[in-house]
């Protein structure tokens, strides 16, 4: 059985997240901003009674962009180290099957991507980078500190 992957649109590029780690994909309602925190943490939302920390993935890439609009984006809900996170991406519609095992990235995929992409996977929709959820959550500052 080939691994199923969720295709997301991030900073105008396609990438995949392994479907097994995805809790759900939701549209966001009211978002509570969190003052004085890292820029890529967009705020808090609630998934039933659990708090959902929203990660603006485009800012987490370290790209100099406008914050993603909460009303038009999709949030991919994942659980990481006991906390729920909503990864904000521009679109998350397709599920595709992997055609091969993940392989090395190859040439430098460009600023930001080299940190958040962990591997390259051949899929039914072509070759796509696989996102590293921990790196997305940590954001660009963490990478600088490390």
């Amino acid at each position: 059985m080939n691994e199923m992957l969720l295709v997301v649109m991030l900073a105008g590029r396609r990438a995949v997240i392994p479907a097994v780690v995805v809790n759900s994909v939701i549209e966001l309602g009211e978002v509570t901003p969190v003052p004085r925190t890292a820029p890529h943490i967009a705020g808090l939302a609630a998934l039933r009674s659990r708090p959902l920390t929203l990660i603006d993935c485009a800012l987490s890439l370290g790209l100099d962009r406008e914050p993603t609009d909460c009303r038009t984006c999709r949030a991919v809900v994942v659980e990481h180290e006991g906390h729920l996170y909503g990864l904000m991406v521009e679109a998350a519609d397709d599920i595709v099957a992997a055609l091969a095992e993940p392989g090395p990235l190859g040439a430098d995929p460009g600023p930001g991507w080299s940190r958040v992409a962990s591997a390259r996977i051949e899929t039914e929709a072509g070759a796509l980078p696989c996102l590293d959820i921990a790196a997305l959550i940590a954001g660009p500052e963490e990478a600088l500190a490390a």
Partner: peptide, 12 residues
Amino acid sequence: KPLSPGIMKSGL
């Protein structure tokens, strides 16, 4: 409810 570590880092 506990907050995620990223938010806790602000200490506020």
